[in-house]
Design a protein around this nucleic acid. Sequence first.
RNA 1: GGCGGCGUAGCUCAGUCGGUCAGAGCAGCGGAAUCAUAAUCCGCGUGUCAGAGGUUCGAGUCCUCUCGCCGCUACCA
Length: 585
Amino acid sequence: MGRFYITTPIYYVNDVPHIGHAYTTTAADVAARYHRQLGDDVFFLTGTDEHGTKVEQAAVARGLTPKEHADEMVVKFKEVARKVGASNDFFIRTTDPEHEKYVQEFVQRCYDAGDIYKSSYSGLYCPACEAYYTDENLVDGLCPDHGTPPVRMEEENYFFRLSAFQERLSDLYRGNPEFVRPRHRYNEALSFIDQGLDDISISRATLKWGISVPWDPSQVIYVWVDALINYLSALTYAADEDLIPRFWPASYHLMAQDILKFHGIIWPALLMSAGYELPDHLFIHGYLKLGGEKMSKTRGNVMDPFPLIERYGADPFRFYCLREVSFGQDGMVSEEGFKARYNSELANELGNLLSRTASMIGKYRGGAVPAPPPGYADPPECDHAHPGSPLAVEATDVCAAVRTQLEEMDLSAALETIWVFVRRLNRYVEERAPWKLAKAAEAETAAAAAAAEFAQPGGSAGGRRLGESCSLAMTARPSMKAWSMDKAVKAAKAASEAAGIEEGGSANAALDATLWDLAEGLRLLSVLLYPFMPQTSALIRERLGLGAPAAVDSGLPSWDEAVWGLMPCGLSVGGGAPLFPRIEE
RNA sequence: GGCGGCGUAGCUCAGUCGGUCAGAGCAGCGGAAUCAUAAUCCGCGUGUCAGAGGUUCGAGUCCUCUCGCCGCUACCA
């Protein structure tokens, strides 16, 4: 059993949540759910960053205290997590007293290690950026980002000796090419390190809204240092026990590119200074760009994800974000794109696959998953041709590929692999044409009945095969019963031929096998799809008779079930509302 | 300015070690089928793989340069 600790950044409460927050949280959730399926010990953390000048100002502007402001904003961010269906184990707020206490301890350790010193700094400061600028950086004397005049500031600050970690950071990167992924982000961070690192200011004297420096209460710890430490502090009070020994170091810190430097350089250095192990990986995902719309000029090309989630549910939203853009790269999203994918892939391909399968099992087999012929359901032993189901080898490959891709955090690639299988199943329906098999099976049963009636009037048909009925028919003497048997047999032969049943094969067996294949394919999809669309996974399983939707989180399908051949027969497959009703507009 | 990325079919994009790599999906057109949410399946692409040079028996795939976007970073005259 492995251990898996994944984090999102803590989101800054100076502004309302947007699609980017939802995206990061969703991606982290997929990884967390996958690892729970593996049976790993999982901890998934998200939360909010609530200190700093901007929050203070936003609060003042609204006539509230910073804490009152934060308390209100936090509700919205918690709502994002809830709406996208995040299964986070804890939600940290940097205003939690436990966090504040832990940050002070942490910073004290760095101070004791001699990595923090006091120095004065003078320069032009942009309050909006919370950053100093040199004259050259200013555009016409104004802040390049905000266009506002900077103010001359001089203050005594505490500095973190980042420069002292240059060598060790460089070694860290060169020794772990996978430390930051994808690779181009790794290159970015490394080249930044190689350019030389300056010490950084980690406190402010002018700011009041923050955690005070333990040995100097006149100063407050600068927002990013406070924020980064959340990944550790949360573990100390999220549960009754101290979870640090159990979950640290983090497996993945997930984030967008804007905060790479904080996580890729400052954070490892802080950890080194305080004597902690470093996280295994940082994963930098891309930006979701809203645009490409020609029609929404008036609305400013803004796509608000929340109405979409309200209307269609969390799963389609999760699916869309991770399917549409290659994970780790920027991509364009739009409401049009959402609807297009929803209709073609969720409604038409996946939803309809379930509908048609359930319907056919209902019509042809009374709603019970039929038993495949003996040996048919066996998982393939190796790459050789499998004597049983024609889908077995392919399905096995799909499971293996999805596993590898999820392991690598290639979330969009995993979805692509899954979708190849969804399409395969629809093609399979066409190839086998169960409706033809059903006709042949019916005729076969009738022929068997007629043969039985001929051989033993009043007796039972007893599952006689068409071949047996045929030979009986040929040796029969002309009689009324023989004539009717002959007719039934001829009809059965014709139907079998139309359905592509080979000589001597049984239409009933072929139909059973095909319907079982489809049920099994869907069962497998419920396992593979679970991390991405947990609700959908549960609904599919419910329709297949495998479990109730109430068990969506407690009864998650284990990855052990990602093996071909486990679909039990006899389960009752019900009708039901479409999984994804088409969006008609 | 330096470093990095991107530029492939109308649209969104895959293309791992240079040799069926010129692809997928969507949209469009034609056909088949009828189990299904009129869903599905099959067939149909003359794309200078941004441009120019080079290496090679052979290059979207490597090298150089140019153009256009983007990211990171730095900042002379």
